[in-house]
Each structure stands twice: as C-alpha cells, then as structure tokens.
C-alpha cells in the first residue's frame, strides 16, 4: 500500500463519517429530559401541596421516588431503550444516575454478590461520586471561608 501519513488518513475517515444529527438528537434529549424534570416537579408539588411536607424534605423525597422509578425501569429493561432514544436527556437527570448504578449491579450478578454485584456496582457511577464529593467539599470550604471573612 502507498505510504500515507496518520494525518492524511484521519482527514479521509473523518470525511466519510456519518454526520451527527445534532438538531434531532438535541430535540429528543430536550423533550425527554424536560419530561423527566416535569414529572419530578409534579411529584414535588404533590408532596408539598397535598401531603403537606416542607420543601426541603419534599425535594429529598422527590429524588428518592425518581431514583426508585428509574431502578424499576432499569430492572424491567426499559431504561436503556429510553437512553438510546434520548441520549443525554435521560443520562443527566438523577434517573440516569440510578440507571448507572443498577445496570452494573444486575450485569455482574453472575460473578456473585461479593465479586460481582457489590464490587462492580459503582463501576460507572464511581467517578461521579468521587468527583461529586470532592467538588462539593471544595465548594463547602470556599463558602465557609467566605462566611468567616464576611463576619469579620
């Protein structure tokens, strides 16, 4: 084969790549993501206005309910289909986080409860937890220092 540089080849295969359908994908993500958030808001409103729970507790309950629904949908094999359709629309909300924990837990059940399920359960969500905790700690520290400085 005639000599070809890596750069030359890259231009060739990038040219051939099927074009990403940005508008279509963004619209789907927007609609499904928006729908999940609207359902969450609905649950929140019901908890506050009908069940009479205070707002801080209600938002925690809302998260729990959404995570529960997503876990059930993952177990039934529905959430991955939603994900294939909606992309980031169903990955970004808290339901996506639930899906990323439940799916490896199910997948690695065959390797046993210790070396499979429990060892692999955070294989996808792990980085989110690690960096989530790290950044929230840093933000907390900054906020604390800011308050001390203000008080002076």
């Amino acid at each position: 084969m005639k000599k070809m540089s890596k750069e030359e080849y890259k231009t060739l295969y990038e040219q051939k790549k099927p074009k990403a359908k940005l508008f279509r994908n963004c619209s789907k993500a927007f609609l499904v993501g928006g729908l999940i958030c609207t359902i969450g808001q609905g649950i929140n409103d019901i908890l506050v206005k009908i069940a009479g729970i205070n707002e801080i507790d209600a938002s925690a309950y809302t998260s729990i309910i959404l995570v529960f629904i997503a876990a059930i949908l993952t177990g039934l094999g529905v959430y991955d289909d939603i994900g294939k359709f909606a992309g980031a629309g169903s990955v970004v909300p808290i339901t996506g986080f639930a899906n990323s924990v439940i799916s490896p837990a199910m997948e690695f059940k065959k390797e046993g409860l210790v070396f499979g399920t429990s060892a692999k359960i955070f294989v996808i969500a792990g980085p989110v937890i690690v960096y989530g905790l790290m950044t929230s700690t840093i933000c907390g520290l900054i906020y604390y220092i800011y308050r001390v400085v203000i008080a002076l």
């Binding site: 991955d80 994900g83 294939k84 439940i102 799916s103 490896p104």
Partner: peptide, 17 residues
C-alpha cells in the same frame, strides 16, 4: 458488550459509526 463496553441495561447512545 460486558467485556469491552458497558452493562447491557445502561441507557447510553453510541455513535452511528
């Protein structure tokens, strides 16, 4: 899929290629 990529029930999109 479970060896090379992600769990089957994980809802992610893959590119057209």
């Amino acid at each position: 899929e479970r060896q090379y990529r992600t769990p089957l029930e994980l809802g992610v999109q893959r590119p057209d290629w």
